Simulated scan of single mutants.
Amino acid sequence: MFCHDHSQLCCTNCVFLNHRLCAKVILISGSVKEPLPDLQQLSRKIQTILETLKKLENNWNTSMHTLQASYDEQLHQIRDTRQKINIILDRIEKTTIKELDDKINSLKVSVKTDADNCSKCKHELKQLSDVIHDIVDKGKAELTFIASKKCIEKVKQSETYLKENSVQVENTLNFQANSDVQQYLCKLSGLGRIVLGTKALSVFSDQVFTVHGKSEYDVSIERDDLEIDSKLMFDISAICVLSNDQILVADFDNKRIKQLNHQYKVVGHFSLTAYPIDMCQITQ
């Protein structure tokens, strides 16, 4: 059976269950009396759809590879960013340790100087003490007078030294961490943001474009020297638009790549050793 209302093939069960209310349900034998569709045309249409589906499938597969490649590249970027942060932290740590080393070396020199002065004072007093015992045993008045004067002077110096050092300072080193750095790092949820980039891929090759206008521009420069019949010749074999909307044109005859600004004026050029045939942008 064939239901004209739904344009659908159906069996007797389907007719009874789903198409009882349809106005025009007839036998297939009755439908074949009507003009039949062109199977070749349908076959061509199926082939066109199959080719489009194949291109769509290829695009999906390409998208999968592109997605994985972008993941691998961004993973490398994340680890590279972490490495850069590690280098910065290593440099900060090295600077902080150097400050610690400089501080302890300075304090050690100061403490050693104080210890040497104390030891010197002690040694000189001990020498005078030993001399006094010898002089007392000899009983000579001149030596006693000299020794007493030296002892009084040295005792006075020693008392002054003890008075100046009556309060002995004990130094220790303490590290005060920069809390701002730790707090900032704790607030971070990651090393950066993951941004999704999208690009439309068309699977249809029969798109129609309409030209709305045409303009001509002069891309000659003073160094162009290829002349035919006293006229400069230009064969622009390729055009490439950069991401900043600047344009590169390949001047085949003059073996140059020329850069144009937004007003299509030549703002730069590069001479080649061969004739440029084509070009395309592959990176930023």
Rank of each mutant, 00 (worst) to 15 (best):
F2A: 10
H4S: 11
D5L: 04
C10N: 06
C10S: 08
C11R: 01
T12K: 03
N13D: 08
C14T: 05
C14Y: 02
F16S: 12
L17K: 12
N18V: 04
H19G: 10
H19N: 10
R20W: 05
L21Q: 11
C22L: 06
K24R: 11
K24M: 08
I26G: 03
G30A: 09
S31Q: 13
V32P: 07
K33R: 06
K33W: 02
P37Y: 01
D38R: 13
Q41I: 04
Q41K: 06
S43V: 06
Q47P: 01
I49P: 06
E51R: 15
T52E: 14
K55R: 14
N58Y: 12
N58D: 08
N58K: 14
N59Y: 08
N61S: 15
S63V: 08
H65W: 12
T66P: 01
L67N: 14
Q68P: 05
Q68W: 05
A69N: 13
S70Y: 05
Y71V: 13
Q74E: 11
H76F: 11
H76N: 12
D80L: 08
Q83Y: 01
Q83G: 01
K84F: 02
K84M: 00
I87C: 00
L89I: 14
I92P: 03
T96D: 09
K98F: 06
I104T: 12
V109K: 13
V111E: 10
D114T: 05
D116F: 07
S119Y: 05
K122G: 08
K122S: 10
E124K: 12
L125C: 13
K126R: 14
D130A: 13
V131T: 14
I132D: 04
I135D: 06
I135Y: 09
G139T: 07
G139M: 06
G139S: 11
A141M: 13
F145W: 03
I146D: 13
A147H: 10
I152A: 15
K154G: 06
K154H: 14
K154P: 05
V155P: 00
K156P: 00
K156E: 00
K156I: 02
S158W: 07
T160K: 04
K163W: 02
K163F: 03
S166K: 03
N171C: 10
Q176A: 08
Q182R: 12
Q182K: 04
Q182F: 07
L185Q: 11
K187W: 00
L188P: 11
G190W: 00
I194Y: 05
L196K: 15
G197V: 11
G197D: 12
T198V: 12
F204L: 14
Q207S: 15
V208H: 14
F209W: 10
F209S: 15
T210W: 07
T210R: 13
T210F: 08
G213V: 14
G213P: 06
S215T: 15
I221S: 05
D224V: 07
L226Q: 06
E227F: 15
I228N: 10
D229R: 15
D229G: 14
S230P: 06
K231N: 11
L232K: 15
D235W: 07
I236K: 02
S237D: 08
S237A: 12
S237M: 09
A238F: 00
N244W: 03
Q246T: 03
L248N: 03
A250Y: 00
A250N: 04
D251I: 02
F252Q: 02
D253G: 00
D253V: 04
K255V: 01
N261W: 06
Q263C: 10
V267H: 09
V267Q: 05
Y275T: 00
I277N: 01
M279K: 03
M279A: 02
M279T: 01
I282Q: 09
